[in-house]
């Protein structure tokens, strides 16, 4: 599904190298987790994959289903099936959640040469998705993320994921700022969307999210590289001993 090879990235504005040769392959239908200390380059990886400005790729590639992501505009990556759940979802005052979602869905459909959804059709479609995720329909009427609590913002990201039906989902520190109950709700949403054709890359600092979203593979990232790869037990090891021991061992 996603194959990242030798990815080197520096900041555009200053001479600071963040990713120093990331290699990672996420198979179709699998859930991979990336853990790592602060400043290891986890969030940068998610931004570079989704096409945010401000980064310069100096070497390497990221191929999704045979297509080179790094040459595409952010909206083209979205239409191709990539989705990033933001660590800090952005507020858009005055724009209803429903309008935002429909504009996004239709933009992607248009880009793929599919027919756009009518307002009526879409309303029904979204309501079903919201219901399946146990999200109050009232949330659809509110402006995008404006006045949302931390938990609501993250759940709104999961709703967007459900509606856009991507094949490759990146979750950037989705657990940050959430209490245990809110985290569990979000994790339930993600688990409901797990399927054979959909892959996940879950970026997190703490192991606790991985209690709820159980990964197939866990990677440890440090200083711009993947330094260790293993099963879910690797996350538990980090939880128990912290990053320091583990890093001392591999570096």
């Amino acid at each position: 599904m996603l194959e990242i090879k030798n990815l080197h990235v520096k900041l555009e504005e200053e001479d600071k190298v963040i990713l120093k040769g990331v290699n990672l392959t996420v198979e179709t239908g699998k859930v991979h987790a990336i853990m790592g200390p602060n400043g290891s380059g986890k969030s940068t990886l998610s931004y570079v994959l989704s096409g945010r400005d401000g980064y310069e790729v100096t070497d390497g590639s990221a191929v999704m289903d045979g297509e080179e992501l790094l040459e595409m505009e952010p909206e083209e990556r979205a239409a191709a099936g990539l989705f990033l759940a933001f660590q800090y979802p952005v507020e858009i005052p005055g724009v209803g959640n429903m309008t935002f979602l429909r504009t996004a869905v239709n933009a992607q459909r248009k880009a793929r040469g599919e027919e756009e959804m009518s307002a009526g059709e879409f309303l029904k479609f979204v309501r079903e998705k919201a219901k399946a995720l146990k999200i109050d329909a009232e949330m659809l009427k509110r402006p995008v993320n404006v006045g949302f609590s931390g938990g609501e913002k993250k759940r709104n990201e999961i709703l967007q994921m459900a509606v856009l039906e991507p094949k490759m989902c990146i979750l950037d520190e989705t657990d940050s700022g959430l209490d245990v109950d809110a985290m569990k709700l979000v994790a339930d949403g993600v688990n409901a969307l797990r399927s054979e054709g959909r892959s996940f890359l879950v970026i997190t600092h703490y192991q606790r999210l991985l209690d709820h979203i159980v990964p197939d593979v866990v990677h440890i990232m440090a200083d711009g590289r993947i330094v260790k790869t293993g099963g879910p037990e690797l996350a538990l090891e980090v939880e128990k001993n912290g990053y320091a021991d583990l890093l001392a061992e591999v570096m």
């Binding site: 505009e73 952010p74 952005v90 856009l164």
Partner: peptide, 11 residues
């Protein structure tokens, strides 16, 4: 805001 919209598929 623009990046957020674009990451959802809008040009």
């Amino acid at each position: 805001q623009l990046f957020y919209c674009r990451s959802r598929g809008m040009d």
